[in-house]
Write a protein that binds this DNA or RNA. Structure first.
Length: 155
DNA sequence: ATTCTGACA
DNA sequence: TGTCAGCA
């Protein structure tokens, strides 16, 4: 059996283990990361570590692709539409220059360095924006903030 | 044995 | 997406 004897550690899985459990190749998982869909933890040596939420999210990505007719680009752009400014308490001034607010090219966590200080120094894996996205409830609630904002502008 | 990055007959 | 190289 595997070494599942860890206690406080949030039993992080290596890419090979994740690949086996989800029946996908490690190359594919790395590709999802390159596309900005997932943000696995990295050890000092560069080893990717996935927790249960990462695995769950990867599962959602697979379904979006295999059952919902989406592709990597589509998912990436969808995540890029997340109303991070409604989740993260950034100032109006930040929003005027934040690429995550002005553009919808990629998820905010995929361009961390270009973000204002509040987000630039944050741990994206622990940020509500990334976590809510990886919850993969349904795509509409994911964009609820957008609707709220649209309503405010319309009425 | 496993993972990592980068490249591509 | 696969896979082979050359490391760590």
């Amino acid at each position: 059996m595997e070494g599942e004897s860890e206690h406080n550690e949030q039993r992080a899985m290596k890419i090979g283990q994740v690949a086996r459990e989800l029946n996908i190749s490690v190359e594919t998982i790395r590709m999802y990361e390159t596309a900005g869909l997932i943000l696995p933890e990295k050890t000092g040596s560069g080893q990717r570590l996935f927790d249960v939420n990462d695995v769950f999210w990867l599962n959602c990505i697979r379904r979006l692709i295999k059952e919902q007719g989406m592709n990597l680009e589509g998912i990436r752009r969808l995540l890029a539409l997340m109303p991070c400014w409604n989740i993260k308490p950034c100032t109006a001034k930040d929003q005027q220059i934040c690429p995550a607010v002005l553009k919808a090219e990629q998820p905010c966590w995929a361009m961390k360095e270009q973000l204002p200080p509040i987000c630039k120094t944050a741990n994206c894996r622990e940020c509500a924006v990334y976590q809510s996205a990886s919850k993969c409830t349904n795509l509409k609630t994911l964009l609820y903030g957008i609707r709220k904002r649209a309503m405010a502008l319309t009425f």
